[in-house]
Design a protein around this nucleic acid. Structure first.
Length: 184
DNA sequence: TGGATGATCGCA
DNA sequence: GCGATCATCCAG
């Protein structure tokens, strides 16, 4: 079953672990890719110092305050994109960063986009999986789902995996919070 | 272990 | 306007 806005219109800390084991699909003109979500991080709203929504909306973070079940894609470190899903009811900010997937469909396309790198390094990082899936900043603000010209969507998991919580990676504030979730 | 690389945002 | 910051990746 495809996850819709209802699934995302909940507290971010509940949505994030529930995404582990679900399947992410990205379809473009080039073809379809999919993978099993194995690592995510929760970013809360205006009260989370590590969140782009910290302190209130800006032009970049506005989509995080909008309706749930949309994508939030940003560009970071001058060379990488990161894919998030917007959570919480409209008016409240929140997002889940997708940090790692296990490739299922479209591995040839992913290899072509990623270049010479090994299969084990195709999608095991937020920047890498965006490159493999062809996600760039114009993919931000899209409603999850698939239409005639492709799209990004998530298929719910069949069974709940064993989940491990740990600290978020690569941030300088709020690093003590166990908001990173992965399949153990 | 550190260099690449550029959008974003707060402050002037 | 300007510059510090940054939810990263990869070569050596």
């Amino acid at each position: 079953m495809i996850l819709t806005a209802d699934f995302f219109a909940r507290p971010t800390l509940k949505v994030a672990p529930d995404l582990l084991g679900a399947t992410l699909f990205v379809q473009t003109d080039a073809g379809r890719c999919s993978g099993r979500i194995v690592e995510v991080e929760a970013y809360l709203g205006a009260e989370d110092p590590a969140s782009h929504a910290f302190g209130g909306p800006t032009p970049r973070s506005a989509v995080m305050f909008g309706p749930p079940g949309r994508t939030y894609v940003y560009f970071i470190y001058g060379m990488h994109h990161c894919l998030n899903f917007v959570t919480e009811p409209e008016g409240t900010a929140g997002a889940v960063l997708i940090r790692g997937i296990e490739p299922l469909e479209g591995m040839d396309l992913m290899r072509a986009r990623r270049g010479k790198f090994l299969d084990k390094d195709l999608c095991n990082g937020p920047g890498k999986l965006c490159q493999a899936l062809g996600i760039v900043r114009k993919c931000s603000g899209l409603t999850l789902g698939h239409g005639p010209d492709g799209g990004i969507w998530v298929l719910d998991r069949a069974e709940k995996p064993d989940i491990e919580a740990s600290r978020r990676i690569g941030i300088r504030k709020g690093e003590e919070l166990p908001y990173r979730f992965s399949i153990s």
